[in-house]
Design a protein around this nucleic acid. Structure first.
Length: 571
RNA sequence: CGGGGCGUAGCGCAGUCUGGUUAGCGCGCCUGCUUUGGGAGCAGGGGGCCGCAGGUUCGAAUCCUGCCGCCCCGACCA
């Protein structure tokens, strides 16, 4: 490709709105342009990167036996009602009406559509296992799109769905995808880690995220050097502290705390530390009222509580529910003397002595409270893993922490959707059985962004060969005809050798071209100017290492082919 | 959705507090000459409903009200 005939609008400065490296560099290198919040036009150079990633996806998924399909982006509400997600998914689901007033949504994910297809097309266990995928634009009306392609509202996702007869074979399918994902991200040249993850609103029980390791990542990851356990901190198991030795004597003391409602107010009013206070949070789950207890200095990990309660969302108790179940005591609730409320305490709460908690009476708290003596509760792990926590898997080493970008997520779904939507097959005995499903996503644009986060320097991007928009940046160093005449055959030769070459034939000064080349970040730069013509050699620079080579023109193609072709396979 | 910030040329910004000629600077863009291995120099030029709508005023980029858009921090996700 000739740069003079291509569109790569590079810029010295990025728009002020871009704050992270990948966003800044994608803007500066002329890969993307913003159209609206979280919605982007992808320019030719950016699109080439997307296509490279998509090609790797297709190759690896087809290797894993998946079949490509294409589902609609506009989905009838009826399908989403069947799965109940029309009501559960919330405002992130962009809803629209057609001219007849019929309701639709833009697909944020495609369990409903694929399950409907499975229900009608998969009739016999003999057709299983089956894994269908698509690479398609999704829309999620996120409250806060961020960081360019990292978190858009409209984004390209590879989503795959597996169908099996029973849980056992479904898990085989799951682990096969785990392996395919490992291959995919390795091939993209990324440093990443599969970590155990919360299953969120998609439901199900077994799940991994594929996290690209980067300080700018939005997720915190906990790993154990001793046993290799790795999990999102939402999910990470931590060693439970033992309950405190129970003081059998004594009793709680009533404390007057007028208008002291929050933990912050309470700790400053009583001049105690947060870890001496029990925080009580009230939720409603159907007809049931749930009280979660945390140490005052800890944050409730909602994902862990949701998983424990096996529900899609936690609904804070309404004032009416609070009034009905305990009384007019907002800001003063505690676990003592309650009836018909399910109390779930974090392990740390049960290890407290002389704790302070709400008295279930206006303007009052209780002191000297002793868990187990003064109240009973289920215990569970309800907090986030933190620095210093011991691995809950091997119970040996402290967990260590890193940050990551969630580029892929796989779920074992079970039969949640197949049951809801009547997707059954006949088993060997001719008996209808709900399909066992898994779903598997990869954000294509996010993978590209993550790749830049992990591969850039002060000057610009340093593309790994497998996802680079081109492999070689040939620069004509000078605008004299003599130089162009020398570069032209090189361009043809390298292209003919099967290399992807971007030829900068623009009438620009050498310094200008060097800067652009470093910004765009193709793996190999080949510079030819007067000097090179005189010596019969070109200057090669490997972008990532900065290493320079003077290579005779006759050997160029061979030199580059030897280095680039093997690198196409990735890590 | 809570908190904070921003909206002036394609991009980066000044001017707004304290209203007053023709709204300014750098980069980029166009023309010419010079230059030609690390984002060149000189000269000339084009480009603005100062986010939108109302209001106050003799006069508004500047003051007031409402709206819209965008970004950042938090709660949610590929």
């Amino acid at each position: 490709m000739r740069a003079s005939q291509y569109l790569i609008p590079t810029a010295k400065e990025a728009p002020a709105e871009a704050t992270v490296a990948s966003h800044v560099l994608m803007m500066r290198a002329g890969m993307i342009r913003r159209v609206a919040a979280g919605i982007y036009t992808i320019l030719p150079l950016g699109l080439r990167v997307m296509r490279k990633i998509e090609r790797i996806l297709r190759e690896e998924l087809e290797k894993a036996g998946c079949l490509e399909v294409n589902m609609p982006m506009v989905i009838p509400a009826e399908l989403w009602r069947q799965s109940k997600r029309w009501d559960l998914y919330g405002p992130e689901l962009l809803r629209l009406k057609d001219r007849k007033g019929a309701e639709f949504c833009l697909g944020p994910t495609h369990e409903e559509v694929i399950t409907q297809l499975a229900a009608s097309e998969i009739k016999s266990y003999r057709q299983l296992p089956l894994n269908l995928f698509q690479i398609q634009t999704k829309f999620r009306d996120e409250t806060r799109p961020r960081f360019g392609m990292m978190r858009g509202r409209e984004f390209v996702m590879k989503d795959a769905y597996s169908f099996d007869l029973d849980a056992e074979t479904a898990q085989v399918s799951y682990w096969k995808m785990h392996e395919a994902y490992t291959q995919i991200f390795s091939r993209c040249g990324l440093e990443f880690a599969p970590v155990e993850a919360d299953t969120g609103t998609i439901g199900g029980s077994l799940s991994h995220e594929f996290q690209v390791i980067a300080d700018t990542g939005e997720d915190a990851l906990a790993t154990c050097v001793s046993c290799g356990y790795a999990a999102n901190i939402e999910k990470a198991q931590i060693l439970a502290v033992a309950p405190a030795a129970v003081k059998q004597t004594g009793e709680p003391k009533r404390l007057d705390t007028p208008d002291v409602c929050s933990i912050a107010e309470l700790t400053s009013f009583l001049e105690v530390e947060g870890k001496c206070v029990i925080k009580a949070l009230l939720f409603e789950l159907g007809d049931q009222v749930i009280m979660a207890l945390m140490r005052g200095d800890r944050e409730l990990n909602e994902a862990k509580l949701r998983a424990l309660l096996d529900c899609d969302q936690l609904i804070p108790a309404s004032p009416e529910t609070l009034m009905r179940s305990i009384g007019d005591v907002a800001g003063f609730i505690g676990p003592l003397g309650l009836q018909d409320i399910r109390i779930i305490a974090d392990h740390e709460v049960m290890a407290m002595n002389d704790a302070i908690c709400g008295a279930n009476a206006r303007d009052q708290h209780l002191g000297a409270v002793q868990p187990l003596r003064d109240f009973q509760a289920e215990t569970a792990d309800l907090r986030f893993a933190e620095e210093g926590d011991i691995c809950g898997r091997c119970e040996g080493q402290p967990l260590s922490f890193r940050r990551g970008i969630d580029v892929g997520h796989i779920f074992y779904l079970g039969n949640k959707y197949s049951k809801a939507m009547g997707a059954t097959v006949l088993d060997k005995n001719g008996k209808p059985t709900p399909l066992e499903m898994g779903c598997y996503g990869i954000g294509v644009g996010r993978t590209a962004a993550a790749c830049i986060e992990q591969n850039h320097d002060e000057q610009g991007i340093c593309w790994p060969v497998p996802v680079a928009p081109f492999e070689v940046h040939l620069l004509a160093l000078g605008k004299q005809q003599e130089i162009l005449d020398a570069c032209e055959p090189l361009y043809h030769e390298l292209t003919a050798a099967g290399l992807e070459v971007l030829y900068d034939d623009r009438p620009e000064r050498p310094g200008f071209k060097f800067k652009d080349a470093e910004l765009i970040g193709l793996p190999w730069r080949v510079g030819l100017g007067k000097r090179g013509i005189d010596s019969g050699s070109a200057e090669l620079v490997e972008r990532r290492s900065g290493e320079r080579f003077d290579v005779p023109l006759a050997e160029l193609a061979e030199f580059l082919t030897k280095r680039i072709v093997p690198a196409r396979l990735g890590n």
